[in-house]
């Protein structure tokens, strides 16, 4: 019984994971490459969904609507980037400010309603939950795979270019970057725009998949993105050295996150406790490398402990 219902829920979990995976790749760009924790994403995810749904409801082609979501997300990243680099506001606070501002902006985009539906019967959706178990081209999975591969390929190319390399250097060491003539402020803004553009695209696809956009759909998105990044690194960090593969690992991380989520839900976890659980798991995985370092330092400082430990073992 448990396995049948899990099996039935699996295609939905995987598809949702892939869609969130694009968002997680956006988080990877800021968190891992740029070394900035960007909280704008909680707002820009819903912005992407809102722009896409409202445009499609007024008859715009779904691909054009998706591109507009990309642009809206990049604009959100631009605002955070300018707060940070031109106004001297710490990166985290800049993200929080934009995120808060986006709540009002998203409501305006959504015609002052907290929720706007986009029915699969009335509109030509790119991806929809309804067909998730069907074995034909309406199934959202193949298209999501294509989009994910395209995103990974484009980012692999971009971060290999001169500009992309300078962006990586900016995240790795700003002193070195500036000494080598790199405009670090410009690069930070560019990275934030790229990241939030992807997050908004993910939001646009998510809204279509769910059949509606909700003003709260982005709440806690950053934590889900981080969870995907960390799961990907823990599971594949040792084998996937190549940059494209590390992006793939993030996407797979998001899928695993949604499968695990499905399992704990089926085991009877209260849906209300989900965010608590996610936050704790992410906190634990973020803490692990720190604890590891602390233990190593103590062992180094006191070699007797190491010896004793070995003897005891």
């Amino acid at each position: 019984m448990f396995f049948t219902s899990l099996f039935n829920a699996l295609p939905g979990a995987v598809t949702q994971g892939i869609i969130w995976g694009i968002m997680a790749i956006g988080v990877y760009i800021t968190f891992r490459i740029l070394d900035v924790a960007d909280l704008t994403v909680d707002g820009s995810l819903a912005t992407g969904g809102a722009v896409c749904v409202m445009l499609m409801r007024s008859g715009v082609n779904p691909w054009v609507a998706l591109l507009c979501s990309l642009g809206a997300g990049m604009l959100a990243g631009l605002v955070t980037g300018l707060f940070h680099t031109q106004c001297g506001i710490p990166a985290i606070l800049s993200g929080i400010l934009t995120q808060l501002a986006l709540y009002s902006i998203n409501l305006r985009i959504m015609d002052s309603k907290a929720n706007q539906p986009i029915g699969v019967d009335k509109y030509d959706l790119l991806v929809s939950q309804r067909y998730v178990r069907e074995l034909n081209l309406d199934n959202p999975l193949p298209l999501m795979l294509v989009i994910t591969v395209a995103v990974i390929f484009l980012l692999y190319w971009f971060f290999g270019t001169e500009l992309g390399c300078s962006l990586r250097a900016t995240g790795a060491n700003q002193h070195m970057a500036r000494a080598q003539g790199i405009n670090t402020k410009f690069n930070i803004v560019l990275g934030l725009m790229l990241s939030n553009g992807l997050v908004a695209v993910s939001g646009a696809l998510l809204a279509q998949y769910q059949g509606s956009v909700d003003i709260n759909m982005g709440r806690g998105a950053i934590v889900i993105g981080l969870a995907a990044v960390i799961i990907g690194e823990v599971l594949f960090g040792k084998i996937f050295r190549n940059f494209a593969l590390s992006l793939l690992a993030v996407s797979i991380g998001a899928i695993i996150y949604y499968i695990v989520l499905q399992i704990v839900l089926q085991l009877g976890l209260n849906t209300n406790d989900l965010k608590l659980l996610t936050a704790l798991i992410v906190a634990l995985f973020l803490a692990l490398p720190y604890w590891q370092g602390e233990v190593m330092r103590k062992l180094k400082r006191n070699p007797a402990t190491v010896k004793g430990g070995k003897e005891n073992a």
């Binding site: 001169e162 990586r168 250097a169 790795a172 060491n173 080598q180």
Partner: peptide, 23 residues
Amino acid sequence: TAPNMQIDENLAIAARRGASRGL
């Protein structure tokens, strides 16, 4: 240096000091 980039990548970044970095 940028610690999480390769030796040759670090050099390539330095080789472009003062030049515009494009695609």
